[in-house]
């Protein structure tokens, strides 16, 4: 059988080629493909953040839609009320979500396990109801970005003159590239974080909480950091999503189904607690969506059944199953034994 290390290297090279190809999609692909892949990439960003939260820090939140919604509303507020460029609004959206994470952690960290999950959901619902009262941004019915905002935002005219085509297509290309960069940055940041001193503490906590505490790892402080950082990433993604959608309502921005349930599904089937897991999950999700889109509710039933099957028969997800069967590891945080010529 071939050496798993060689296959791993091959997969890494293919991954790299895939990334280059993804960067070229707005140049060589159709606008519909760009829009489709934008959706996939934003789901991937949300899944990577939720994976870090639940898979590594053990914080199973079902209130991540709160950060998407706050990110989106903060971006709309920046554009509509303060006249800022939407791209600045994305950064503000991330910061606003991180600020929301502070009181949210204050309440929900007093709860554990299932109660924590319910607590985060309740806080998300309260946040949604609060934003539905914000009359300047349309209250319960929501609002749209002023006409032409996305066509004139920073970078769009340049992309338009470079690629040709319409301003809308250039705007789609820009948001797509931003989503791709954010997805890659999240993956790299998660890997570096997990290899840092704090990340070592997080992995130690996952291995054995009591032993980790006895070497000085403070579980609450560490988990609070992860909660805030993933809120930032989720908020950035929320703002970016709604630049492309151009219209926000409390129901859409704080949708538990779109921004948390699908995200949990993607992470669980891909492989929770592994970095490649959400990538595999989002690919499977995308193809299922494409294949079953015409079957209405059957689509959701199939998704549910697949999720249950994976949880029952491949607890570490499809990536975990693949790793187990082939010995191939990618972005592994576990230490591999050295090869024979390295070992003495």
């Amino acid at each position: 059988m071939s050496d798993p290390r060689k296959i791993t290297r091959l997969i890494q090279l293919m991954g790299l080629a895939g990334v280059v190809l993804l960067f070229l999609v707005p140049v060589i692909g159709s606008r519909a493909l760009v829009q489709d892949l934008f959706g996939v990439l934003t789901l991937l960003i949300l899944a990577q953040n939720w994976n870090l939260l639940a898979g590594f820090a053990g914080l199973v939140s079902v209130g991540q839609q709160a950060f998407v919604g706050v990110g989106a509303y903060a971006m709309f507020a920046c554009v509509i009320l303060l006249g800022m460029d939407p791209l600045v609004g994305i950064a503000v959206g991330g910061v606003a979500a991180m600020l929301l994470a502070i009181p949210m952690a204050f309440f929900s960290f007093r709860l554990a396990g299932a109660y924590f999950a319910i607590g985060t959901w309740v806080v998300a619902e309260i946040t949604r109801l609060c934003f539905a009262q914000w009359k300047a941004l349309g209250g319960g019915t929501g609002t749209s970005l002023p006409k032409g905002t996305t066509k004139t935002m920073f970078g769009v005219p340049e992309i338009k003159s470079w690629l040709g085509g319409s301003s809308s297509a250039a705007s789609d290309a820009l948001t797509y590239w931003l989503a791709l960069i954010l997805a890659l940055a999240t993956l790299i940041a998660a890997y570096l974080f997990l290899k840092s001193r704090m990340g070592l503490g997080l992995q130690a906590l996952r291995d054995n909480e009591e032993a980790a505490r006895s070497v000085g790892v403070n579980p609450t402080r560490l988990k609070a950091w992860v909660f805030m950082l993933t809120a930032f990433g989720t908020g950035l993604c929320g703002a970016l999503l709604f630049i492309q959608i151009t219209r926000v309502t409390p129901e859409a921005a704080f949708s538990v189904l779109d921004w948390t349930a699908f995200v949990i599904f993607i992470t669980v089937i891909g492989g929770i607690g592994t970095l490649p897991g959400p990538i595999i999950g989002v690919i499977v999700f995308y193809f299922l969506q494409r294949t079953l889109a015409d079957y209405g509710t059957v689509y959701l039933i199939v998704l549910g059944c697949l999720g249950i099957a994976v949880m029952l028969f491949a607890r570490r997800g499809l990536w975990g199953l693949f790793t187990e069967k082939t010995g191939i590891e990618l972005l592994s945080l576990r230490q591999l034994p050295p090869t024979e010529n390295q070992a003495r």
Partner: peptide, 8 residues
């Protein structure tokens, strides 16, 4: 001993 299996 309780070493952490995820770590080198």
């Amino acid at each position: 001993r309780r070493l952490f299996p995820s770590l080198s």
